[in-house]
Design a protein around this nucleic acid. Structure first.
Length: 172
DNA sequence: GCGACAG
DNA sequence: ATCTTGTCGC
């Protein structure tokens, strides 16, 4: 739970936002930022779905396949599939089903708060995605990796970051 | 034909 | 996602 590096990029979009095709809009910029990231993480948690996608190819899976990077998805809303409401306590979870196939988990990242939806992306499985997101729980609904990344990119967009601070590494 | 629909 | 006004529980 300790940040070790970051990479921020400003890029033009060349594809509209269409549910089910998010990767075609955001992966280009994501890869650009990824290329400038000196210290790659063991697992990338993407803001979106992994295999919990109509064709099992959400942005986390798409990016993972194109880069060979282990990844998983953690989305704020369901895209496809059905699930029963998990328990109300942090850590409670229930499977997201597409017919008889499990494609992810509805996970309670904060007690009495709407769950987040996690699923494997690339090079890791269903249980792995659950174990990993469990270790990313902080004080808020959004798991720390995604929450901290959003906080940083928002400061970047508002021009609140010092010049030459678009990427770097923290020393631990 | 109708509803659902990541960011 | 963005914008905007008000409300709710801890």
């Amino acid at each position: 739970m300790q940040p070790v590096g970051w990479s921020l990029v400003k890029a033009e979009t060349h594809f509209p936002y269409v549910p089910g095709y998010l990767a075609f809009r955001e992966v280009p910029a994501l890869k650009e930022a990824w290329s400038r990231l000196t210290t790659k993480p063991d697992v990338l948690v993407v803001d979106g779905h992994g295999v919990a996608h109509p064709r099992r190819l959400g942005i986390a899976t798409h990016f993972g396949v194109e880069t060979g990077q282990p990844s998983m998805g953690c989305a704020k809303k369901l895209l496809t599939g059905k699930y029963n409401e998990p328990g109300l306590l942090v850590g409670d979870h229930s499977p997201i089903m597409a017919g008889a196939e499990q494609i992810g988990y509805a996970f309670r990242s904060k007690s009495k708060t709407a769950p987040v939806f996690v699923s494997p992306g690339h090079l890791l499985g269903m249980e792995n995605s659950l174990q990993i997101i469990r270790q990313c729980i902080g004080k808020y609904r959004i798991p720390e990796p995604t929450r901290l990344a959003h906080e940083l990119v928002n400061r970047f967009r508002r021009g609140e970051l010092p010049e030459g601070m678009t990427y770097g590494t923290f020393t631990l």
